Amino acid sequence: MVDVSYREAAEVGKRLLAWYNEAKRDLPWRRTSDPYKIWVSEVMLQQTRVETVIPYWNRFIERFPTVEALADAPEEEVLKLWEGLGYYSRARNLQAAVREVKAKYGGRVPDKQEEMLALPGVGRYTSGAVLSIAYNVPVPAVDGNVFRVLSRIFLIEDDVSKPAARKKFEALAEFLIPPGEASNFNQSLMELGARVCMPKHPRCERCPVHDMCRAYKEGVQEDLPVKGKKKPPRPIDIATGIVWNAGRVLITRRPPQGLLAGLWEFPGGEVAGGESHKAALQRIFAEKWNLSVRVQSHFANVQHTFSHIRWNLQAYTCEANGGAAAEAEDTRWVQVWQLADFPMPVAHQKLAKALAGLV
């Protein structure tokens, strides 16, 4: 582990707790000790800003106030409430996990780490956050903010993308927890990283431990944490059809596994090398839905970037030749005003809104 004395650990803990009690934001999930509601907030906050999460969390908890309410809800309704937050596997995993909590634990969120970690989609960070914040269990909760804070305070130059580094940071974070203060201390680390010890231009003069910060003393705080470089997202050309028949438009549901699983979208797919978007649409409709379409005019361009790919989507209005494709579980012909009832990826939400503006 990192060379940290008990005295140094105690001083860091004391200062961060005092600072947190004075400076913490009034967030809705901090007004409850309900582990389910805290769990929902932690899942939503992954890869998403606090300001974005607040209205989503409020709506979600209003509709699904208990483990049982979420466990019993139709998945499509859950995904619709999640619409716009992205990373939809989070919502599906959360619902699968609470169903297990209902079945195995009578609806009570487990307070033991091995039980939390056995739930679908629950990793070490989420488990640590829920157990420490809701139950005050002295376990670490190391996310990006905590990696950054600890790497700077204790000048740790390990690559945080490596599993060995995570173990080191978790051991250090656990060592630092003051007795009986796991909930507030773990939140103090997160809060400091979000508001003071920021990725760029850290506000060191506002930091309660800046005079103890080893990176600050060396003037290298902005160089930490050390991270392996990510590959840039791979561009993919997508052809999408706004297919009309008898005043209705065609939407299809994505497969139950994979990217954006289970969401509805305007049909289409990847453009092959050397293929035009119009030719791609005719090929894709014939292959996937046995449907002949007449591609009419360009409708819109939409770009959307995921962590690993970037969609360059071109949409065209089309007309079905020889009648409509048969409706099935994953295929619907709907009125434009009905599109708002279906959970859709952000790129397709933009198309739906543009379409509604033209009708």
Rank of each mutant, 00 (worst) to 15 (best):
W19D: 04
R108V: 15
E83V: 11
E68A: 12
I38R: 07
R7K: 14
E100V: 13
W311D: 09
H277D: 09
Q95C: 04
F285E: 01
W57A: 01
R49N: 06
R310M: 14
K80A: 14
A286F: 10
W57Q: 02
L27F: 11
P28C: 08
D330Q: 11
P178I: 12
D341F: 12
V334E: 05
W289C: 04
A300C: 00
W244D: 10
P232L: 05
S297E: 14
M1K: 12
R203W: 01
V137H: 05
V101H: 05
T331E: 08
A165E: 02
P202H: 10
C213F: 05
A215N: 06
Q314R: 15
L79P: 02
G84M: 07
E191P: 08
N145W: 01
G228R: 14
I156S: 03
H210Q: 13
A325P: 02
P233L: 12
I284W: 05
R59K: 15
L150G: 01
Y88I: 06
D330P: 01
V160K: 00
T48M: 08
G228H: 11
F60T: 04
L131G: 01
M44L: 12
P199I: 08
A324F: 08
Q296R: 15
W244P: 05
V78W: 03
H348K: 13
Q221D: 06
P65H: 13
K288H: 09
